[in-house]
Design a protein around this nucleic acid. Structure first.
Lengths: 342, 342
DNA sequence: GCGCAAATTTCAAACGTTTGCATTTTTCGG
DNA sequence: CCGAAAAATGCAAACGTTTGAAATTTGCGC
């Protein structure tokens, strides 16, 4: 029986049964051997693993998954609200996605990415969670789906969402304290000498709304005005909209809080074109502290979100939920990074 | 039998068998009904679908996949060479990934993302293709895995790779004509008045090597010198390295071809800090034409890759390969986008 | 050698679908 | 109404693995 591997070279060994025949044992033993189960004799185990390597055997994951009722795959859903085209190419989301991939891989999970357009697809959440294809779900951004997510959270435990934390919400969320971030931004603008503020960004997503609210808190407290300038994040419409805002309001403001670094960079460009000196004539603070923030001229002052920590948090909480724990939300502290624009 | 749905509310209906019991038919019929198979009577079909909706029934994909021997999932592998941390956060790759997600979703496929570190994981390709988890594979970037990919292509057909096309290669690739792109860049630099060129970028990845080669062609033909300045793409080391290159070579060059817009943006910043006027004293051309290119000051002249077209090509070719066709590679034309830096 | 426990291995039943084939029901021309 | 063809449904065998329980082998003290 030691020379089983000297048998004539037969067809490709695809299934565990093929391998069993080759090794002269039963399928069950092979399965256990490959899993490193100590129930099977160390020598047989080694011999089988050897054989598997030699024949380039790959376990069929589908079958394994079906039987074990788990897949080792975590779903990552990116709901796209109205601003369809924007979000997925947004540097922030992409960086988060990259870190998520790292973090999940590290823990032996695969990542199944799905972009969903909630308007077109009523039950995108149920479809994903109920498919049996994923063990758990990470949702990147609440978009305008807060209610739906909240509803799903009642039945489906292994789900963690990146976004903003609301008082008393049911679903587990990881995200930056956007309101605090907004305060930090406004405080910095004031400290840099601004006396009349503007907020650039769409206030529909609750993250952005919270940032604006934080800035408004500070402005109210200091008795300075702050005006909201709704600006789309879609890359093609952004510059025009900013130009329009500046044309209307530039004379009435001397400090801008941009909801996003991407927005801030676009602002910087428009300000430059209008000949408004930054930071002398106009202070500017962004949000996210993307790599690009350090590379603009002048370098951008921004509110840093620790994306890597966010990804770690998402994965950590999800794994704990997969283990049955009912985790609390995680709110990360934002951090002011002072460069040259404010 | 019409009032089957008036039966007492029992446990959740998870399996097709539950649904069958509820509908008073066999599992087979339910399966066919849900698939819209015309073998089953239109009325029963409708009734079953109704029932499924009412109970929020979700087909178990794992079981379905196992039985049908296909998953509807396309794997996307991102091999990370030496420059680990860089690539996945690189705006170009991320944008491509976003478009891929779009395009695959459009065709009813899901996307399974996997970052692989070839050094640590010898047979990352076999593991992915042999797992039975994916119907086909898209590899983003050849990195330093050309040989391994080439080997896999011999056995595994449904695979398409983003990258550079080599004469006589076996695996199907989609990518920009990097050499031509390099030529366009160099030609533009010369047209803008440059007389001594430099190439900034790592020439190890074959895409970049081809860009450099294209530029060198033009330089040689025009009789102007071009020097290669190896620059890492890792965001933390990039600025320092650029500064070092400029300190050494700035006096000897008046035109820079950056392998990437990300690199070009960093160059722009360093040039500004050294007080070298762009484009008067130093012409600069980037590559990719990322959104950021239009937002720098001055706006960046760049070589445009049509990322969306690339994604469409990758998916289209993969689908055709899944259908059994043996497709040729697709080489996309780059396009010069003239802005203000050259 | 015997008996008993421990160590291995085999057996067979799942996991939830899909699908070829057999079987039942319906339809319809005569 | 009969019989045959057509339409609809049921049956049961896969898909390839895992795993509890049963069966077999091995080890060991006496």
């Amino acid at each position: 029986m030691a020379d089983a591997d000297l048998s004539p070279p037969d067809g490709p060994v695809r299934t565990i049964t093929d391998l069993a025949r080759l090794a002269g044992v039963s399928a069950g033993t092979v399965s256990r051997a490959l899993a490193g189960n100590s129930l099977v004799n160390a020598r047989t185990r080694e011999r089988i693993q050897q054989l598997a390597r030699a024949h380039g055997f790959q376990l069929n994951q589908m079958a394994s998954n079906l039987r074990r009722q788990r897949t080792g795959v975590v779903g990552v859903a990116i709901p796209l609200g109205h601003d369809r085209r924007q979000q997925i190419s947004d540097a922030f989301f992409m960086t988060l996605l990259g870190h998520l991939a790292d973090e999940l891989t590290e823990h032996g999970h695969d990542l199944m990415l799905r972009r969903v357009i909630p308007d077109r697809d009523e039950d995108w959440l149920a479809r994903f969670t109920g498919s049996g294809m994923v063990d758990g779900l990470i949702v990147i951004g609440q978009s305008d789906q807060f209610a739906r997510i909240e509803a799903a959270a009642a039945h489906y435990l292994p789900m963690v969402v990146w976004g903003n934390h609301q008082e008393g919400q049911r679903h587990c969320v990881v995200g930056t304290d956007n309101r605090l971030g907004g305060r930090l931004a406004a405080e910095r603008l004031l400290a840099a000498g601004a006396t009349k503020l503007a907020f650039f960004g769409d206030t529909a997503p609750i993250e952005f709304a919270a940032r604006f609210a934080g800035a408004s808190d500070v402005a109210a407290q200091a008795g300075v005005p702050i005006i909201a300038c709704p600006t789309p994040l879609a890359v093609d419409r952004m510059p025009g909209e900013i130009a329009r805002h500046l044309a209307r309001h530039a004379s009435r403001i001397d400090g801008i809080f941009a909801a996003t670094d991407t927005l801030a960079v676009a602002c910087l460009k428009q300000l430059h074109e209008r000949g408004l000196a930054v930071p002398e004539r106009m202070r500017l603070v962004g949000f996210d502290d993307l790599p690009v923030a350090g590379q603009t001229t002048p370098p951008l002052t921004s509110i840093r979100q620790d994306i890597a920590a966010g990804a770690r948090g998402l994965v950590d909480l999800l794994l704990r939920r997969l283990a049955g724990e009912n985790t609390e939300s995680l709110v990360l502290p934002p951090e002011l990074v002072v460069r040259a624009t404010a």
